[in-house]
């Protein structure tokens, strides 16, 4: 018998070289902040979750912990675990911590909207936190740093013009599972990495319940989808067709959330249609 070598099936990998990626993202933050904008301070909204923790760790590496202000922004319904986990990050890094309750601002508006459902209330909280981050940045001569990952950006699982609004985002091209890997590499406390991700806008909320799929499954499907594989080909790799359809539906239903507002074009100098200049021009 002549020996036979079995070739493994090819698949896009979610593995990342964490040290290489961390060095790259630190260089990104330094270039974009210090060299391009001459800003040396960052403001990060710390939720107690892994995305904002990783962002804070990267900012501390890039700018020095003393130049990173982490803001905890609890609402009345926020879990105390989230606050504790956020503190674990600021204590580990030695960065500046602020706790700014958003209940007054949120309720000041919602008191007149008693019928607002959880979704509307969550959006008001997210947009209030955005106001806080931008205002604190203005106060400190800092830049707010975004914390949205690629999975939630693709699934549209964020509040438009809130979570996605900071001018810089170091982790927005990393799937959630890659953020977990990077978090462990950076030394983010294991409790934060291991816990079920949650937007913490409502009691007992988890991302994976909201999305209807686990992050691991979603990331595997998304990576194939973005690489250009048709849904049937993705399903043939061992995914439930319903899961593939769910992910496809979320992505296709939210392209608008990854763009600036749709503006009616009337001229041949329409901004971003004819008049094209890069963000750093």
């Amino acid at each position: 018998m002549i020996p036979v070598l079995e070739a493994p099936p090819r698949a896009p990998s979610l593995d990342i070289d964490c040290e290489l990626a961390a060095a790259w993202l630190v260089a990104f933050l330094r270039d974009e902040m210090i060299e391009r904008r001459n800003v040396r301070r960052a403001v990060v909204g710390l939720s107690g979750g892994v995305d904002s923790a990783v962002t804070a760790y990267l900012c501390a590496r890039a700018l020095g912990a003393e130049n990173v202000t982490c803001v905890r922004m609890p609402y009345r319904t926020s879990s105390t675990d989230s606050l504790d986990d956020a503190r674990a990050v600021t204590e580990a890094l030695g960065c500046v911590e602020r706790t700014i309750e958003i209940a007054g601002a949120v309720d000041g508006y919602l008191v007149n909207e008693p019928d607002a459902d959880g979704r509307r209330r969550g959006n008001v909280m997210a947009r209030t936190r955005m106001i806080v981050l931008f205002d604190q940045s203005a106060k400190l001569g800092a830049l707010p740093i975004g914390t949205g990952n690629k999975t939630e950006r693709l699934m549209g699982y964020f509040t438009w013009h809130a979570d996605d609004s900071p001018p810089l985002n170091p982790i927005g091209d990393l799937f959630k599972t890659q953020v977990w890997a990077l978090a462990r590499h950076l030394g983010v406390p294991e409790r934060i990495v291991a816990k079920a991700p949650s937007a913490d806008l409502e009691a007992n909320q988890t991302d994976e319940n909201d999305l209807g799929i686990t992050y691991l499954e979603a990331d595997r499907i998304l990576s194939l989808m973005l690489a250009g594989y048709a849904d049937a080909k993705i399903a043939a790799r061992g995914f439930a067709p319903a899961d593939v359809a769910l992910v496809r539906g979320k992505v296709d239903g939210t392209h608008w959330k990854r763009h600036l507002p749709t503006t009616a074009m009337l001229s041949n100098t329409a901004i971003n249609e004819f008049y094209l200049r890069p963000v750093d021009f």
């Binding site: 790259w24 260089a27 990104f28 270039d31 974009e32 060299e35 391009r36 890069p278 963000v279 750093d280």
Partner: peptide
């Protein structure tokens, strides 16, 4: 070298 609008 250098980053240009997020692209390194």
């Amino acid at each position: 070298a250098g980053f240009e609008g997020g692209k390194g």
